[in-house]
């Protein structure tokens, strides 16, 4: 079955890695879809994917380009990424823009833990993906996926604002395929809270 995940801004065919999305859909639909709940899922995903609020987080160069994405000439508000929240509790996804070093790693993990689910991670730039030009350093984490799970990778050093928008739209597509009812998010149990 062919699946199409269109966005208003960009058609399915124009995305470059549709095999991956198709694979994802196949995995998710293995259990079949309930019609009633499926419609509800669509509504929820429509809301979620169109209202992804980024956390204002940047460590280095990519952060400046991320600011450019929000500024006039690129304007990510068009897609619903309007409100950059400074508090992790209110943000939906974190753009890891820049190198993550050893000292920052626990901080980043803590930030991720502080976010309310559903939460997503975009690794922006070579440094966040693999350590980039600083890979051999004694103090650089070789990719943020060592610390937190990453949903979308945006390569570049730094990626152009257009690339960032593309990556963010990829995240939107991914969110559109989620299943709120009986999906993956029910599998994980809340850990016992220590009083």
């Amino acid at each position: 079955m062919e699946v199409k995940v269109d966005l208003k801004s960009m058609k399915h065919e124009n995305f470059k890695d549709n095999e991956y999305i198709e694979q994802l859909v196949k995995e998710l639909r293995e259990g079949g879809t309930n019609v009633v709940v499926g419609v509800l899922d669509d509504v929820i995903n429509w809301g979620r994917s169109n209202s992804l609020w980024p956390l204002t987080f940047a460590t280095s160069c990519c952060g400046i380009e991320f600011m450019s994405v929000g500024a006039a000439s690129n304007d990510m508000a068009r897609f619903g990424f309007e409100v950059t929240r400074a508090s992790p509790r209110q943000a939906d996804f974190i753009m890891v823009a820049g190198t993550i070093v050893h000292k920052m790693a626990p901080v980043l993990k803590r930030l991720y833990d502080q976010m309310a689910s559903p939460k997503y991670v975009i690794a922006v730039g070579g440094c966040a993906i693999s350590g980039g030009p600083f890979k051999n350093s004694y103090h650089v984490v070789k990719g943020v996926n060592e610390i937190i799970p990453v949903d979308v990778y945006i390569p570049g050093c730094p990626p152009r604002p257009e690339a960032m928008l593309y990556g963010m739209m990829q995240l939107q597509r991914k969110v559109k395929l989620e299943r709120f009812f009986g999906g993956v998010n029910k599998k994980e149990k809340r850990p016992e809270q220590d009083k």
Binding site: T59, S60, G98, T99, V101, K103, M104, V107, F134, N136, S137, Y138, H139, V140
Partner: peptide, 9 residues
Amino acid sequence: YIHRGVEKL
């Protein structure tokens, strides 16, 4: 928090 060890590299 963004010390990348550039001088050593």
